[in-house]
Simulated assay, not measured.
Amino acid sequence: MSPDEYCQQKAVQSGSSFYYSFLFLPQDRRRAITALYAFCREVDDTVDECNDPMVARNKLIWWRKEIKTMLDGTPTHPVTQALKPHIATYSLQGQHLQAVIDGMEMDLDQTRYLDYKGLQRYCWHVAGAVGILSASIFGATRPQTLQYAEKLGLAFQLTNIIRDVGEDARKGRIYLPVNELQQFNVTAADILNGRHGENFEKLMRFQAERARAAYDEAFALLPAEDRRAQRPGLMMAAIYRALLDEVERDGFHVLNQKISLTPIRKLWLAWKTYVRG
């Protein structure tokens, strides 16, 4: 199996909404974004699928070294071997790849966030930096496009947090800010024990409004000159906003189930966004 095939398999197996937007890219850009996605998947799985925090931490240290090895020209992992040819082509910055690893390490060090400011910092590492890298691959010609991508990454991560509240709680993590739990009279025990109620719904509606505002702020930043090139991100946004709507229609019953869109609906939303230009 070639490095590109390894990354392709990783992307397909994930079932992620991101995969559907990759299908509409030219071959070279599709290979680059698939390699980037596979990298993010690898380091994320390092934390999520490892029961021993020390082992996970050591694996992240290995990935940090592997990024440096790749930038020096001698990668050893299929993902970095697939990513290496695209580093110079799309001006991908090692600091942003390392920032993603920083975000995964935060999951080993922290399971609660006192306020939204602290949560934003986490979101920048695990999603904003990825947005910047992705926009570079799609074709960013204006600095403002990278600001758009960073903000869109935040919107995606806020959506993920809303969708995954129950799943994250079962891993011992609560990303909803502590001061906002207090504001809506929802306790950590309510979240960890899957207790859905009126206060929880109000809290989640507040989170959803913030996520939608982040989408709107991102779209306002995207320069017209780069809109066509950045269609993959807009496809992802269409899918994620539809998911957010679906979660809200279901009354934010996310503590004991994971709400998702069907593959055919994701493909339809991606195609509809693509033809709109």
Rank of each mutant, 00 (worst) to 15 (best):
Q81N: 04
Q27W: 11
H96M: 15
N58I: 02
D28W: 07
R121E: 15
E198V: 12
Q9K: 11
A238G: 08
L181Q: 05
R30N: 03
G166S: 12
A129E: 10
K65T: 04
M104H: 04
G128Q: 07
E150V: 02
A224C: 01
W63Y: 04
T141A: 07
L181Y: 06
R212V: 12
Q182W: 04
V55L: 10
D45E: 14
L146R: 03
L158Y: 08
G118T: 06
Q95I: 15
T89N: 13
I191G: 01
L243D: 08
W124G: 09
G197A: 14
E42F: 08
N160I: 07
L261W: 08
I191Y: 05
V79Y: 00
L146F: 07
K272P: 10
R227Q: 09
L192Y: 11
Q230Y: 04
Y116W: 15
L23V: 10
P143S: 00
K68R: 09
H77Q: 09
S136F: 01
W62Q: 01
T262D: 14
L192A: 13
Q81L: 09
Y113W: 09
L222P: 01
I174R: 01
D102E: 14
Y116S: 11
A149R: 00
G194T: 03
L154W: 09
V43I: 13
S136Y: 01
L152C: 07
A11R: 01
Y6S: 02
P85T: 07
